[in-house]
Design a binder for these strands. Structure first.
Lengths: 333, 333
DNA sequence: CTATGGTGTCGAAGCGCTTCGACGACCGAG
DNA sequence: CTCGGTCGTCGAAGCGCTTCGACACCATAG
């Protein structure tokens, strides 16, 4: 292993000069900087991360706590993760991956000074992990919106607004009876707030618009989708517009509608709330409100960095939803 | 931050004694060990990862390079990642996540002593990353099988055998005309060897059994599935058995078969090569050869650890495939 | 009663880096 | 000229931990 000592010797300067040349924290003459850079290249010098962390109290690593269970919509999670990792790269940071269940892990990596900040996905209303997070000295940013955001940076799609946008789109097309096919009951029970915010936005906007509306949770499986659609059809037989907020069940929802003799978009319009790539990946490209998972992950990193630089206090950012009309919505018959 | 010094003072012993008590590398009397443990608990002491890494040349972190693009079968990747992270936990290791494209990342984390070993997924036949990996001092384990495995530990499902098992199952049921609907052409072109190994096993076993067989690559999309099935039907009109090795296209393949008037399993038997959970998650539970992604990830970690302990040399492990008959295969009509 | 060999503990020397204070050298202003 | 001020560089003091060698102690063997 080549060390900073080797570099210093090769360049004929002191260790501290090398350090300053590399960090740019003090002025160094062009000529010596050059000699140092040459030595670095020749010796293929790479600073030792541990030593650096010890001396500078900075690790250049971010912790990311992600739900790695398979039941949830794996695709969305992957996009969040990708967004985080990619954006972290631009800040010269690496990402340490923790599983959602590994509560001790947060403490381990934070208290053990392995990371500069932690990003936590899929936060629930009264998430038990928040208490742990609060007693760490590193800043934390949450993807999601807990009941008490004090001390945290939070970022998420504005799901309430997303629901409103979807409802308005349908109402604008003349639909007077609409339904929301949403997250599994388990997700609602877990008080993952995005599901609740979606439902709230949907109900309020439907009421405001004066249209008939029902909400049905939906298990993330074929059978779940069938059951949910049948419940909707039972409760609101003349439904002509459906908002689907469940990526996994999406294909099955569409298939079930077809099986029940409803043609999309002729008999029923469908608006999905999901990442764009799954919306356009279906047999029929779906009108959708995008969940920009990757960008949100990126924003989370931005916020973490801002906190680290002390340039910013904790704040909550709700990303505005965007609806893109595609082939699955049309004027009411 | 409480340091080992604080603990030593609180317990009335020297720093080194605390270190030995905690690591167990030298005998410590029960009474002092107890006092030390009390102090640790009282002060909520957590060793500083950087300091530890600096002094011991061990970081307790593994690098995992994963393909985070969305085009591939996200679910499988997620399972690999989960398997790695979960198994790493049992070895008290954390996981640093790198993206497939971040070639410089491997060098950065390895040369910078951020990790003890690196695990690399989705290895191609002549992967350019292998050269980088070879010049690091940390052991590397590959998930996949490059052309030249020298110096690496490798682990993967035995795809060649998987194909054989699938073919044998169909042949055993009397099918004399079979097809393999496989990975996208791009994957084959990229020389990701699992795809090629699958094709090889399929062809050889079909030849051996004396049955008619065709192979068709298949894009991971609805349209791709339709096209692939139509090509199969064209080339081999009396096909009665299909092996599908493409999780993403799977639902669309089934749908297309139905649309083309072929009932499964009455007219056509289908064997999927995919993780069990996607096989049973379909409307009709699929006969499948399991891709035990999570276990393979776990094995990768085991191998990395074995290398670190010096208890083992590099070796290649091919996991034996297991076929589970379900509802989509039956005797030929 | 002296050698022998565990046990249990300590001090000190690093591990490789950052950063603080100091110090010549050189400059322009008074 | 001389006095402050920048500029560029250096030495040294840590950062918090592991580990090596030393040593005191006590029990057992000879």
């Amino acid at each position: 292993m080549t060390t900073i000592d080797d570099v210093a010797r090769a360049a004929g300067v002191s260790v501290s000069t090398v350090s300053y040349a590399l960090s740019g924290k003090r002025p160094i003459s062009a000529s010596t900087r050059e000699r140092i850079e040459r030595a670095v290249r020749d010796l293929d010098y790479r600073p030792h991360a541990g030593a650096r962390a010890l001396a500078s109290a900075r690790t250049n690593v971010l912790a990311l706590m992600a739900p790695l269970r398979v039941d949830v919509n794996v695709g969305v999670i992957m996009q969040f993760v990708t967004g985080v990792v990619t954006r972290a790269q631009t800040y010269q940071h690496d990402v340490l991956l923790l599983t959602q269940e590994d509560h001790a892990g947060v403490e381990r990596v934070a208290a053990g000074s392995m990371v500069d900040a932690v990003i936590m996905m899929d936060v629930e209303a009264d998430d038990p992990r928040l208490a742990i997070l609060r007693r760490q000295r590193q800043p934390a940013v949450l993807i999601g919106l807990p009941r008490d955001t004090a001390g945290f940076s939070c970022v998420d799609l504005d799901f309430e607004q997303a629901a409103r946008v979807a409802v308005d789109h349908l109402v604008g097309l003349g639909h007077g009876s609409i339904a929301l096919v949403g997250s599994p009951q388990a997700v609602l029970d877990r008080h993952t707030t995005y599901a609740a915010r979606m439902v709230r936005g949907f109900s309020e906007e439907a009421t405001r618009a004066g249209v008939a509306a029902v909400f049905e949770p939906c298990e993330s499986s074929h059978a779940g989708a069938v059951a949910a659609i049948d419940r909707v059809l039972l409760r609101l037989p003349d439904v002509t517009g459906i908002v689907v907020h469940n990526e996994v069940a999406l294909p099955a929802v569409l298939a079930t509608l077809r099986e029940r003799g409803r043609s999309v978009p002729d008999d029923i319009s469908v608006v999905a709330v999901c990442p764009t790539d799954v919306a356009v990946g279906q047999p029929l490209p779906l009108t959708s409100v995008d969940i920009p998972a990757s960008s949100i992950g990126g924003v989370a990193v931005d916020m973490a960095m801002a906190r680290l630089n002390g340039t910013q206090l904790a704040e909550t950012r709700l990303i505005s939803p965007v609806l893109t009309p595609r082939a699955t919505t049309g004027p009411v018959a």
